[in-house]
Structure formats: structure tokens, C-alpha cells
Design a protein around this nucleic acid. Structure first.
Lengths: 134, 134
DNA sequence: TCTGAACCTTCCCATCGTGGTAAGGTCAAG
DNA sequence: CTTGACCTTACCACGATGGGAAGGTTCAGA
């Protein structure tokens, strides 16, 4: 199949498929006589693997490692698990950061009447917070 | 004060101060005779405002709006609140996405024995998930 | 058989926020 | 007067994705 169909059936855009090939995440695709990229069902499976792992928030670097492990019959599942646990830790940190922002903002917002007058606990809250900077 | 001190005292790097000026987030700083940027306490307050709002996850576009509102004596607090509530909604969506990833990964990881053998529920889980793609 | 639409190719540029680095000018203390 | 710490501008980079230009290929229908 051509790149368009591979894109449609994998959920990875044509643009990205070419990009992944150019950075070495994917091995170079077969080419037709006219130079079109040609994909097999196996290639499609790899593309879907990438789509799935992207949607789980892995970076392309991590996906490269996951792909190697996936294709390595002699892998240790411990290696896979370690990679995944590290990624979970990253997610946890990110979630904690965002949640902390959310909490602060929610507190400020709930103190703000949100009317036509200029008095705003949100802005004065931020302004005060500023004062405690290095 | 020079840019270095402003950076140290605001928590915004010199690099970023120049960048913010170049994209119009900050008005051009005063210059000394020799061309050095010179900052006042008022400028410092603005820089700290930016540092604080960045740390709350606002984009530079949103910060520009917040800065205008902050400096507008005729603002409506409703406008501030709306901006903040929208940002909270963005955060909520992001948190939900990350949490969903986390949940999936945690489930897969806890099924994986993480030993020296290749059998890996994480990889087979991902591989299976692939099959259900468009 | 020709034509046009729908593909495909490569190449460059943009985003967003941040950092690095190079090549040069300025300032103050020793 | 030198030295080191500062400052200036101007580029390039990241990570992941998208947009678009300029050109080649394929195939169905008139």
C-alpha cells in the first residue's frame, strides 16, 4: 500500500511517517519503480505501534527503545518495565505540576466576583505572589 | 539595573527578557548610553508578573492579555476571570489526558513481572491495542 | 487517447518556549 | 592597562507537528 493508505490505516499522518523515516525511527520503506513508498502489513503494524505509544505519551526516543525491545526476541521484560515505570514517573510529575497550577488558579478565581468592576483578587493575588520572588 | 540583575531578581533569564521584548510582550527597555538595557523597579515588577504567570502555565499570548488587563485601570474583573477559567479548563483537559495515560500504563506495568524473560504483557498489551486502530 | 483529479515526491518554513554559542563592545577593579 | 564579568546582536538547536510550494505518477472517465 502507498503512504496515504498506511497513514489512514495507522493513524499516523503521511507527513509524520516520512519524518519518522528521516530521523531513523522507521527503517526506510520499500519503493515502487516510480519512487513511491510501499508499505506491508508488517510495516502497518509498526506504524500502529508508534501511534499507540505516542498516544500513551512516550517521546520518539522512548518509542525507538520500545520498538527495539518489541522486535528483540531476547529482551528482558525488566527493561520494558523500567522504561515504562520511568515514563509513569514523568507523567506523575507533570500531573502534579498541572494540578498545583490548577489549585492555585481555582482558589484565585473563586475569590473573583467576575463583574464589570476592576477589583480583581486574581490579579492582586498574582501581583502579591510576585513580591516573593528571588 | 542591567539585564543580568533584572534576570536574577525576577527569575526570568536574560535570554528570555530579550526574547519577550523582541516579540512585543515587553515594551522596549530604556537604554544606557552604551546601549545596555536598563530596568526600573516597575519593570522588575512586570518581569516578576511574567515569571509568576508562566509558572501558572499561561502561554505568552495569554500573559500578554493578562498584562494588558493588569495595567488597565478600567478593566472588568470578568475578563480576567474568563481568561483564567479557560486556562483552568485547558489544565483540566491536559490533566485528564495524562491521567488516562498513567492509568493505562500502570495497569500494563503491574501485569509485567519485570524479569529476565522476554514475555511482556506491556508489549503484548500495546500490540493488541494496535489492532483496534482505524 | 487525452485530461483532470488524486495521489506521490522532496524541500523549506512555522509553531512554542527555551537554551547555546559566536563575535564583538563596555565597564570596573586590580 | 589588563582582566574578567558583564552586555550587545545574530544565528542555530531542541521536539513533534503542520503547511505549502513545485514537480512527478497513476488511474478513471470522456
Amino acid at each position: 500500500m502507498n503512504i496515504g493508505e498506511a497513514a489512514r490505516r495507522s493513524g499516523v499522518s503521511s507527513k509524520m511517517i516520512r519524518h519518522y523515516e528521516s530521523i531513523g525511527l522507521l527503517v526506510s520503506a520499500q519503493r515502487s519503480e516510480s519512487g513511491y513508498r510501499v508499505y506491508s502489513e508488517k510495516d502497518l503494524h509498526t506504524l500502529r505501534f508508534i501511534a499507540t505509544t505516542r498516544s500513551l505519551g512516550f517521546s520518539l526516543d522512548e518509542i525507538q527503545k520500545l520498538l527495539s525491545l518489541w522486535q528483540d526476541k531476547n529482551r528482558s521484560s525488566a527493561d520494558v518495565k523500567e522504561l515504562v515505570l520511568n515514563h509513569i514517573a514523568d507523567l506523575d510529575q507533570k500531573i502534579a505540576e498541572l494540578t498545583s497550577m490548577r489549585t492555585t488558579l481555582q482558589t484565585l478565581a473563586s475569590a473573583c466576583s467576575g463583574n464589570a468592576r476592576p477589583d480583581c483578587p486574581i490579579l492582586s493575588g498574582i501581583s502579591t505572589h510576585c513580591a516573593n520572588r528571588p
